[in-house]
Design a protein around this nucleic acid. Structure first.
Length: 417
RNA sequence: CGGGGUGUGGUGUAACGGCUAACAUGCUCGUUUUGGGUACGAGUGACUCCGGGUUCGAAUCCCGGCUCCCCGACCA
């Protein structure tokens, strides 16, 4: 798209009411707008990032049998009463509201209960299992303290998949598949080297759950990493018993701050039992459905990437989730140069490459600074200088490596790798 | 939810209890400039978070509330 048409703008200074690096950079670069503590509007550039992350997640969820659906943000209280999770004393971060007739509703903070209730309509036989519906949407949590920009908001965008299986054996197979899918997702996003599958508390559901934790100085969690085995343990279950069980030496562990970017839970019949989600087995007997849930914080991931991959000049997006692959810049008043840049813009677009064309009438300093701040992986400059140097200048945002190539070879450069 | 801090044009800052709330940036117009936020000029833009109080006089002091940030607690 043409940058002159983009309604957002960059700014030199970050607002003083933001302390986190991710919020400061995302606001300065025009990705997000703060509405209240823990509530951010996702502007066009951010939507592109979130969509790119979601596309990777969809791809991997579909590959393991997931089926996307769209649940409601407003929830009826019935299933929550059944599982004893409606009371504010039990779950203190509910946002609640009501209909004109005083019927109480909850604003979704997760969907185990409504999903289990809904699946009663579709599951009655072992032939109906397994089933893996998933949902990509915003949810709401009335956090006592929102913090760290988009990394811990009161409204955030996530993916949640719920698995419905016949029994623990069937569940375990999918659980492992989901874990591998998660690993692939974080690799594709560009966080593969810094994200660890981590043993964590199973809560009231099971002995362990698994979290996916990305190393990040501003993270809320502390994890212990065993570099030899690649096993990581959340501080909450870091004790001698667990270490012995996992066969890990205490003194080889490295302590790191990290952010939970995803988690997978075995729920067993914790929800299916009280809600009455059962199926008839091959033997003709009623059985509780064995459930699992699998979350990934999409808007949080956007924050984690900014937090861990930016530099002093601005954001550095991994190519796979960047809003645009190329930031195309042109300098000067030379009309021929501008026309060449515009032609290149159309050629790239026609080749299916996402390109942001800075066609604004601004000095080179402003355009270069904006490009660094906004963080597209490739900066392509068409200018009198670039022509003198052989055509078009291509600079990689992460390494700063520069090369000049003939303008006619640019499309091939990006389509052929 | 406990503790600490904060609040002044869109943004970043300044202003002893005392003149028309100042500067930078942004934005508009003009000239200039085009490889790292170019320079100059003219404009535009503020119930100083809200409500009380003290005072001849409050952005400034006091009380209450709210907001946002930070630490902690919490986090299916």
């Amino acid at each position: 798209m043409k940058q002159s048409q983009l309604f957002t703008k960059t700014r030199k200074e970050a607002p003083t009411d933001e302390a986190s690096k991710n919020a400061q950079l995302l606001i300065r670069a025009g990705y997000i707008h703060k509405v209240f503590a823990g509530g951010y509007t996702f502007l066009p550039l951010a939507v592109r990032v979130l969509d790119n992350i979601a596309a990777i997640i969809r791809d991997e969820m579909n590959a393991i049998g997931g089926q996307e659906m769209q649940s409601t943000a407003l929830q009826s209280k019935e299933p929550w009463i059944l599982t004893n999770r409606w009371d504010d004393d039990v779950v203190d971060n509910w946002f609640k509201t009501q209909l004109k007739n005083d019927t109480e509703l909850g604003l979704a903070f997760t969907h185990e209960e409504p999903m289990a209730l809904m699946m009663k309509n579709f599951i009655s036989s072992y032939k109906d299992l397994p089933a893996y519906p998933y949902d990509i949407r915003s949810v709401f949590r009335n956090e006592a303290r929102a913090k760290s920009g988009v990394m811990r908001g009161r409204e955030f965008y996530w993916k949640a998949l719920y698995s419905f299986s016949q029994n623990e054996e069937e569940h375990a197979v999918f659980y492992e598949k989901a874990a591998h899918a998660y690993t692939r997702i974080f690799e594709r996003i560009g966080l593969g080297d810094t994200t660890y599958k981590t043993f964590a508390s199973g809560g009231t559901f099971s002995k362990y759950s698994h979290e996916f934790q990305t190393i990040c100085d501003s993270g809320e969690d502390t994890i212990y990493i065993d570099e030899k085995t690649g096993i990581a343990i959340n501080k909450e279950v870091h004790n001698d018993e667990v270490l012995a069980e996992l066969g890990i030496e205490k003194n080889t562990l490295i302590e790191k701050k990290a952010v939970e970017v995803g988690n997978i839970f075995s729920l067993a019949d914790k929800f299916s039992e009280p809600i009455g989600l059962t199926y008839t087995s091959e033997q003709g007997k009623p059985q509780n459905v064995f459930m699992g849930s699998y979350g990934i914080g999409i808007s949080r991931l956007m924050g984690v990437v900014v937090e861990t991959m930016s530099d002093e000049k601005g954001i550095v997006w991994p190519e796979e989730i960047s809003p645009f692959t190329i930031h195309l810049l042109t300098f000067g008043k030379n009309e021929n140069i501008f026309r060449e840049a515009e032609n290149l813009y159309h050629d790239l677009k026609n080749a299916g490459i996402e390109v942001l064309f800075d066609d604004r009438d601004l000095g080179p300093g402003q355009k270069l600074n904006d490009a660094d701040l906004m963080g597209m992986p490739y900066r392509v400059v068409v200018s009198e200088k670039s022509v003198e140097n052989g055509g078009v200048e291509i600079t990689k945002r992460d390494s700063g490596d520069v090369e000049y190539i003939d303008q006619n070879r640019v499309v091939a450069y990006f389509t052929e790798g």
